[in-house]
């Protein structure tokens, strides 16, 4: 199986405190991997390291076999973060303009839109059922609609892997359900690799084939079907903790 991401002996610290220490991780094509862990356990930090937005203190991250700091083929990677909605709501851009910009690398000498890109943009918008909104200004849409636009933007470059950092925080449950169904379809039908952080245990339990727990600066790997959800849920409810104690086994 093709390795999408490979992490070797990665450590990262803010100031003096290590957030992650000697991490090893391989994400393979077609995986649906969920990161679980309490707040502050370094889930978002790990994703940012995988995307090269943060530089590791030591160790290396390879994306599609290339060290992330030299990686340039960003169209193969999609990313939706929890900060995605923190944009200037009065930015005067239409949905179509924002999605077109994502195709920068596919544009010709002049970085302008052209008729060749139009079908791709429409396909991406149709995927999230937003085709009728392409000329609307981004700030005039509801939170759920904006979220769908950002998914369309991620999908327009036809990525092979998408990273989702709790993208549905603050969106109503109906929109969340639609979103997770879509992600599931992308993974099952199109074979797109999915890496996500989520506190939604139902999503993790029904969709992820691999679960990675972040505890005490380290990763613990589980296969999706081996992960003890009942123990996890009991812990969440009983002790009011996000990640309860549970057994960890290292899976090759």
């Amino acid at each position: 199986m093709k390795k999408i991401v490979e992490v070797n002996d990665l450590s990262f610290k803010y100031d003096r405190d290590f957030i992650l220490q000697d991490i090893n991780l391989v994400i393979e094509q077609g995986d649906f991997m969920a990161f679980l862990g309490p707040n502050g356990s370094g889930k978002s930090t790990l994703i940012q390291l995988l995307l090269g937005s943060l530089k590791p203190t030591s160790g290396e991250v390879k994306v599609f076999g290339v060290a992330v700091e030299h990686f340039t083929d960003w169209g193969r990677i999609g990313y939706i973060s929890q900060q995605v909605k923190n944009f200037n709501q009065s930015f005067p851009a239409t949905v179509k303009e924002l999605i077109t910009a994502k195709l920068y690398q596919q544009m010709g000498f002049l970085k302008l839109s052209n008729s060749r890109l139009q079908p791709r943009i429409e396909r991406a918008l149709a995927l999230v059922d937003m085709l009728d909104y392409q000329d609307r200004q981004l700030g005039s849409l509801s939170g759920g609609q904006q979220q769908r636009v950002f998914i369309a933007r991620t999908m327009v470059s036809e990525p092979e892997v998408i990273f989702l950092d709790e993208p549905m925080v603050g969106v109503d449950s109906r929109a969340q359900d639609d979103f997770f169904q879509l992600v599931n379809r992308l993974n099952n039908e199109l074979g797109i690799t999915v890496v996500m952080i989520s506190h939604d245990i139902h999503v993790v339990s029904s969709q992820a084939n691999r679960v990675v727990c972040l505890v005490d600066r380290r990763l613990y790997h589980h296969q999706g079907d081996e992960f003890d959800y009942s123990c996890y849920l009991e812990g969440v409810r009983g002790k009011n903790r996000l990640v309860p104690e549970h057994l960890h086994q290292v899976v090759d």
Binding site: L51, S53, W74, G75, I77, Y79, F87, N88, F91, A93, E97, L98, T100, A101, K102, L103, Y104, Q105, M107, K111, L112, S113, S157
Partner: peptide, 16 residues
């Protein structure tokens, strides 16, 4: 479109 994306969000632009 590069300048457009840069004014929208630099980090998003880098990841595109």
């Amino acid at each position: 479109y590069g300048l457009f994306y840069l004014s929208f969000n630099e980090e998003d632009a880098r990841l595109s």
